[in-house]
Computed example of a mutant assay.
Amino acid sequence: MNGIMFSLEELGVIDKNDAEIQKEALSLLKESSDDLVYKHKVMKQAYSSSADNYSFDQTKSNIENYLLKKK
């Protein structure tokens, strides 16, 4: 969440002509939002009875995606 908030703040105050900083901020925004989505999927499976819980392959995929982001 902090990465998303920081990226949005940066996009709000940077020089609109500085494409490199915009690119870095958008990259951080994408990375942070992907991380948040993967965390949500893992927590949803761990603490709820979602439809994803009925598929071992889906559970495995969600956990692998989450752990890959942590490397």
Rank of each mutant, 00 (worst) to 15 (best):
E24T: 12
S32K: 01
L29N: 01
S50V: 08
D57C: 04
A51Y: 02
E31A: 15
A19C: 07
I14G: 00
D34N: 10
S61E: 13
L36E: 06
K60V: 14
S48D: 07
M43N: 04
E24M: 12
Y54N: 14
A51M: 05
Y47G: 04
I14S: 05
L36R: 03
M43A: 06
F56Q: 11
L28S: 07
L29G: 01
Q58K: 15
Y47L: 14
L29E: 01
D18A: 09
E24V: 14
L26K: 11
Y38N: 13
S49P: 00
N17W: 02
L29W: 00
S48H: 05
K30Y: 04
L36T: 13
D18N: 15
D52R: 03
K39W: 01
L28I: 11
H40I: 12
T59F: 04
D18Y: 04
K30S: 08
T59N: 05
S55W: 06
I14Y: 04
I14A: 06
I63G: 00
D57Y: 08
N62T: 01
D15K: 05
I63L: 11
S48V: 10
L26S: 03
S61Y: 07
F56S: 11
A19S: 12
L26R: 08
S33Q: 08
S33N: 06
I63T: 10
V13I: 14
Y47P: 00
Y47C: 08
K16L: 14
K16R: 13
D52T: 09
L26F: 09
A25M: 04
K44P: 00
L36N: 03
D34M: 07
E24S: 11
Q22S: 14
H40M: 11
N53C: 14
V13M: 12
T59K: 09
S33E: 07
N53Y: 03
K39F: 01
H40F: 12
L26P: 00
D15A: 08
V13S: 12
D15F: 02
S27L: 11
K16W: 06
S27F: 05
N17D: 14
D35H: 03
E24K: 12
T59Q: 08
T59Y: 03
K39V: 04
K41S: 05
Q58M: 11
E20H: 09
S32V: 08
Y54C: 05
Q58H: 05
S48Q: 09
N62F: 02
K30Q: 07
S50M: 04
Q22M: 14
S50R: 02
F56W: 10
L26T: 05
V42R: 00
I63D: 00
D15V: 11
N62C: 02
E31F: 10
K60Y: 12
V37I: 14
N17L: 12
L11N: 00
L11R: 00
A51C: 03
I63M: 05
K16D: 13
G12V: 01
K16M: 13
I21H: 05
S55I: 11
M43G: 00
K16N: 13
K23N: 13
S50C: 13
Y47K: 07
Y54Q: 12
F56G: 05
S48P: 00
I63N: 00
L11E: 01
Q45S: 08
Y38K: 06
A25C: 07
L26W: 06
